[in-house]
Design a protein around this nucleic acid. Structure first.
Lengths: 241, 241
DNA sequence: GAGTGGTCTAGACCACAGA
DNA sequence: CTGTGGTCTAGACCACTCT
């Protein structure tokens, strides 16, 4: 691992100042030149850090005026889950609170859909995993995941009880590249009724996704279902290239 | 308006080459130095263009190896609507196919929620707009929108029958900055049953959002509801700062 | 070692907003 | 006119991957 890039350090410093209220909502940050001098980096490095904070929705910039703190979002609440985050549920909600029941864990040959989604031949085995993710013991999400065995060796029940994400990230050192996620509403099926304790025909919020590694290989096809009104997905969009 | 930035031109050129199949999925683009020489720009300008294409999900980069075309997404289909796009429905689906019935169009004082969402005083009037958006005549989305009157003068039924987005963008020259969007599943209410012809307790996919201008002012609070299985929201996430 | 992308710099010029 | 952010350059060095 390399030492952290300067623009990431600068971004962290500025983010902390925003969170600590050093820079307050709707007020301008010091200008880029001043920040560059204070932090002993070039102006471009400061700009790169601010661009990142803008994409995160922490600041907005007006050319000719300055860079301003955006402030809190009124409709944000604790049930919101970012729909664009490469972090496992355990990392999102705290690993102490999240547990997982393993409902199914098999190795099998992929059906045609899964072959297509994961760019596999019919002879390339995949894991077929169903887990019920619980938050503080309460059923939260019913996950159905397919992953190619050749990319993810030695997956076992111990890992499934904890975080697949951390195993991929920390043990196998895989890096995610892109994820395409589709969010839809459907009716509760038998699985939802059994494991999420949804009532028949209750609305279900489903997230279907394909995740690619940073080398272009698809590593996961999965669906995550949760009961309506229990958990929402959230997207932050910023108007920048 | 200024002449288009070089990195945007470069990005458009490269995007066109990808779409035209000059660069094919899973194959590397020419390296940054070569592209810079060919297009008579600096390497940093090429890199900035490629960064943008990476965030759009067209390419991925592997340090030490090259930049590669990602290729098509298997689960993508025509019902997908990007959950992160500052473009009106008419621009997304084609203005010929999209029509709008005006169900309600009033000016009123905002209730406490709307005051909070749009950062208004109780004496600042807002538009309260309900529209049924149709695609080729078929009911598609039930929209409920609040906008501050002071930011959006002279809104009228003519505009509402077409595109509010285009009025803000082209006539008023407003620029969007950030949008916070929350996607949830709920049950059909009376409005949904009446206008979307949903059945009682059918699942509904709802998008609730606040949109800010690039000067930090909130310009819209709205909910968009559609029947389940008719339209899904899609998010593309890329692993880059 | 060769070739790739990633970062960083100093300096320059431009566009834009406000006084 | 001043001060802000936006763009662009040439050149340098580094980290990473593959041979």
């Amino acid at each position: 691992m390399t030492a952290e890039a300067k623009y990431l350090k600068v971004a962290r410093i500025l983010q902390k100042r925003i969170e600590d209220g050093v820079y307050k909502p709707q007020t301008p940050l010091p200008d880029q030149k001043t920040l560059a001098e204070e932090l002993h980096v070039s102006r471009l490095t400061v700009k790169k850090a601010l661009d990142g904070l803008q994409r995160k929705g922490l600041v907005y910039k007006e050319s000719g005026l300055g860079t301003f703190v955006l402030g809190p979002v009124p409709i944000q609440d604790k049930f919101d889950s970012p729909a664009n985050a490469f972090s496992g549920l355990a990392n999102l909600l705290g690993s102490n609170e999240v547990t997982s029941d393993i409902i199914e864990f098999n190795v099998e040959f992929p059906n045609e859909d899964v072959q297509h989604y994961l760019k596999l031949k019919s002879s390339d085995p995949v894991y077929n995993i169903r887990r019920l993710r619980r938050l503080e013991g309460k059923p939260l999400i019913l996950e159905h995941t397919f992953m190619p065995v050749n990319l993810v060796p030695d997956l076992n029940e111990d890992i499934l009880h904890n975080s697949i994400y951390n195993y991929l990230h920390h043990n196998l050192k895989l890096k995610f590249g892109v994820a395409y996620r589709k969010i839809k509403a459907t009716k509760a099926d038998d699985w939802d009724q059994q494991y999420l304790q949804a009532k028949k025909d209750d609305p279900i919020l489903e997230l279907e996704q394909i995740v690619w590694l940073n080398n272009g290989q698809p590593v996961e096809y999965s669906t995550s279902r949760n009961r309506y009104n229990e958990r929402n997905y959230v997207v932050l969009e910023t108007n920048s290239f």
